[in-house]
Amino acid sequence: MGKLKMITRGIIQENPTFVLILGMCPTLGTTISAINGMGMGLATTFVLILSNMVVSLIAGWIPSKVRIPSYIVVIASLVTILQLLMQVFVPSLYETLGLFIPLIVVNCIVLGRAEAFANRNTVLNSACDGIGTGLGFTLSLTVLGLVREVLGSGSAFGWKFLEGDGILAFVLAPGAFIALGYLMVLYNKFVKSKIQ
């Protein structure tokens, strides 16, 4: 499998949100706007690429019974590094995303890729897989954020095109579930059927 294929696979055929249905908490919790969704996606991508690389490096000399705890320690450290860096470079985004940044540790996508891919592939391939999966995740979060922002606050990427309020429900909790549900329907209808 080529490197490019490895990257695009995570974006479409094995999109973490729409196909694997993983990492739902940040998907729903942070997508109030397109920018927030994208920020969360990129933060996760950062952890995903590095954790995939580190895991594929160290997998060879870790006894298999303490595999999972070791990966968790690696991922948690990477997340903490991310937290510290975000406080320096993007403090306002860090504040908006809040609790969901430390929660990347328990995002099933990260541990899932470490366990299912990185521990039996080369560093370079694992990095590609991390990029692909991460970008797929970022893409779906950005799209969901955009939909909620357009419907809920009448703006796109912070650019306001509608005076006054949008449909408030889409900014609040119920809208997150409903928007994602309908996006999944669209994905099933137009993308999934084409692939198969």
Partner: peptide, 14 residues
């Protein structure tokens, strides 16, 4: 197209 997770999500929204 709604079967499985999508309909569950819409229900959860309500």
């Amino acid at each position: 197209a709604f079967r499985g997770v999508p309909i569950a999500l819409v229900t959860a929204g309500i």
